[in-house]
Amino acid sequence: MKGKLPMLLLGALAFLCCYPVLFLLTGTLMDNGELREALSPVVQQSGGAVTWRLLPRYPTLQHYLELLLDEPEFFVMFWNTVKLTAAILAGQFLIGTPAAWGLARFCFPLRRLLSVLYIILMMMPFQVRMLSDYLVLDRLHLLDTHAGIILPAVFSTFPVFIMYRFFRAIPEAILESARLDGAGVLQIFFYIGLPLGAGGIVSALVLSFLEYWNLIEQPLTFLKDKSLWPLALYLPNIGAEKAGTAFVSSVFTLAPAVFTFLLGKDYLEQGIAAAAVKE
């Protein structure tokens, strides 16, 4: 396993993983002529196959301007996505953090049962939850509202699980000495738990951000009104004849996620790895 071969393989794999970003960026910078020429086999069935240059011939920012000036719809959807994601993350932080702290650092009846329950619930995909979500949203008259997407997600048990893992790792001795100094339960949570578990909280929120920025199933099922839709449902509906717009919208959708990724990359790694640690 020595020598250049593994490096080459790993490098090729890394390129494959990141190529879509480059592809989208290239597409946004091509002028209409070049896009039309490149995509004509798909758009106009003109025969032959799409050929794609690694870099644009005459780079232009024209499509960015077009999107900014001519596509008000895009910004409605963008704002919807921001609103949904921000509300869900805030809710998960407010509700999930104390729950994780309670499960991780206290002994009370049913604690073990609750932990198992939370893990089981975390595993259930949307196809299992679809009807139950519908029933509850219908009863609360939250169908076709953003609140109907936000509320069930706020009580998702996945972030609780991640934060739980980090809170568990805080040494008991620290809490013990705080208790001896007369710190109350709340003081310990705010002044010791939150700062020492900050890594776990950020990890959980980064994972949640990537998940909910990408939300598709729930809005697809529960939002009939298209003006409430997030970006993810809007993008695939841009026709190939407006390829420039499609490329730029894709990049705008991508940007916040990639930005979060670059800022929170270490937390993301810790958050993923947290699940692998055996207790």
Binding site: C18, P20, F23, L24, N214, T253, F261, E269
Partner: peptide, 19 residues
């Protein structure tokens, strides 16, 4: 490389649909 492997996780599905 390790970070590059994680990039697809950050790319929203809707953005790669075009590709």
């Amino acid at each position: 490389f390790k970070s590059m492997y994680l990039v697809p996780m950050a790319i929203p599905v809707a953005s790669v649909v075009l590709l």
